[in-house]
Structure formats: structure tokens, C-alpha cells
Amino acid sequence: MSLRIDFGIEGGFAALPGLAKPLRIDCADLSKEEAARIEALVRRADIFHLRLPAHVASIPDARTYTIGVDDGSQHRRLRVEEPIADDAMRELVAELRGHAARLRRAGTS
């Protein structure tokens, strides 16, 4: 089964309800190259076993990303706050941000 990811963006400079609502990114709907890239980033970020750092204090206007990943046998839901220290996670979030923006655009065009 291909990966399915629910991705939402909270906060940032403004509350934008449309971006906060999680959006489904299904790798089955992506091109082979795009799906392979996301799957590789999810593996690199070690999503299913990752231990997130303890929450200390939020940075004004920084964003929190809600990420739910399901590969058919495992599910993990994370809240990832900026700034993101882990390189792999930062890269994954940037990739998901791009896909989410394209999907939102396509959904309203």
C-alpha cells in the first residue's frame, strides 16, 4: 500500500483556517518520481520511530505542522514546530508544503 499523509499548517504570521485544515496527500495519486521522493524522505526522517524534542516554548509567529502518516500497517501523527532542527524532517516538511500548495490550488481552479 502506498503512503498517505495528512498535512496541516497551524499558526505562522496569521491564522489561516484553510491551511490549518489537514489535506490528504496520497502517494498513489502522485507521479512515480514524486511518490518515491516523499517515501524516501519519510524513511529518512524515520517518522514511525522518531522521538520529537520536548516542547519548550513556542516562537512568535513560527508555524506548527501537523503530519499524519499511514503506510497501511503503521500510523503516526506528529506536531512539528519551527524551527525544525532535523535536516530530514525539515526537507520532508518543505516537500509536503509544496505538494499541499499545489493540491489546494488544483482544488480551487
Binding site: E10, G11, A15, G18, L19, R105
Partner: peptide, 26 residues
């Protein structure tokens, strides 16, 4: 259509109880 509607309240009657965005700070 993409961003949704600005949901800021102007008065306490519209105060939003939420855990999102650090308790709705924005």
C-alpha cells in the same frame, strides 16, 4: 477558497476555545 475565512472575533462573544495555534493566539 484556499485560505478560508478570516475567523478573528471582535468581541468576547466570539472568543474561540481551541488548542490549535497555541490556543488561538492569532
Amino acid at each position: 477558497p484556499v485560505l478560508g475565512k478570516d475567523d478573528q472575533p471582535a468581541t468576547m462573544k466570539g472568543y474561540v476555545h481551541t488548542t490549535a495555534d497555541n490556543g488561538g493566539v492569532h
